[in-house]
Amino acid sequence: MNALISAKNISVIKSGKNILNDVSIDINKNDFITIIGPNGAGKSMLLKCLMGFYKPNIGAIKTKPNLKFGYMPQNLDVIKTIPMKAKLFITIKKKFDKISLKKVISETQIENILDKQLSFLSGGEMQRVLLARSLLNNPELLILDEPAQNLDVSGQTLFYKLLQKIYSKRGLSILMVSHDLHLVMVSTKQVICLSNHICCCGKPQQITNDPKFLSMFGKDMAEVMAVYQHSNKENFENN
């Protein structure tokens, strides 16, 4: 077993509610897993368990020794009250060398905004800065929690393109919570539908035909997916 993180039959029960129910998940090298699910489905809790912030009531999580992972939160909420340049934010409390800093800065295309105050960054710029910070220690696994939620559609597209580029260049693994499945269809290799338990999982094109997916997200969503699937078909066949 060479999984980076492997969770076996984990359950989380909090104030009488079953937030996660018998969830098993393996994250392997070079995986690109997207977790989708309705609000309150336990998506963030699953991430917390996998990162070791929260201990599940039942089940076990095995993590590869000395696993280096980078975490990208949705947003920061204090950016208005604290004066700080983007460059300082990226490097606080991080061990890094100059070469990886340079590499990260050019990868995420933030050369021009390094000296800007965090409070003056646009949504897209902020996401790139957060991404840069999570990449600075050359992680084997990148964990993202709804990274593009605060962006408009074109911003989302740009962000996922950037993520795809970093994924294929660095050869790392990605675990992401995202609602923008139609946008990550091309990149992601595996989709997990979570609604306290794992409803269904598989390749994106399989999952849109799954009756459980249809009952969770409705037919409209599946049809939207299907459209994207056609336009992306060549990509998948090449894989």
Binding site: M51, F53, P73, L76, D77, I82, F89, I92, K93
Partner: peptide
Amino acid sequence: WSSLLLVTLDEDLAKSEGI
């Protein structure tokens, strides 16, 4: 100093880096 600053910015981010 830097731990305080990081927790101020985002508690989950700090946790992910072992604080």
